[in-house]
Simulated assay, not measured.
Amino acid sequence: MTRNEYHVVPDGGGWKVEQGSNVVGTYDTKQRAVEAGREAAHGNEPSQLVVHTSDGKIETEYTYQGDPYPPAG
Rank of each mutant, 00 (worst) to 15 (best):
G73S: 14
Y69S: 10
G13M: 09
Y27C: 08
E61Q: 07
A36V: 06
G14H: 08
T63Q: 11
L49E: 02
H42R: 13
G12M: 10
Y62Q: 02
Y27S: 08
G14T: 12
T29D: 01
E45S: 06
E61R: 14
K57V: 05
G12C: 11
D55P: 00
Y69V: 03
A33P: 01
V24M: 02
E35Y: 06
K57I: 04
L49S: 00
E61N: 07
Y64E: 05
V50W: 05
H7D: 05
T29H: 02
S21T: 15
E18D: 13
P71R: 06
G12P: 08
D28S: 15
Y27H: 14
V17M: 07
H7W: 04
G20W: 14
R3I: 11
T60E: 06
Y62C: 00
H52Y: 07
A36G: 13
V8Y: 01
G66F: 11
H42A: 12
A41L: 05
N44R: 04
R32K: 09
R32L: 10
G73D: 12
S47M: 08
A40E: 14
T53G: 12
E45V: 03
K30M: 06
A41Q: 02
T2K: 02
K30F: 00
Y6M: 05
V9P: 02
E61T: 09
G73P: 10
A72T: 15
Y69G: 06
Y62N: 01
T29M: 07
G37Q: 04
K57F: 03
A40Q: 14
H7I: 00
V17E: 00
H42M: 11
A40W: 07
N4R: 12
D28W: 08
D28Q: 13
N22K: 15
V50Q: 07
G56N: 09
T26C: 05
R32S: 10
G43L: 07
Y69Q: 12
K30Y: 01
G56A: 02
D28K: 14
G13E: 13
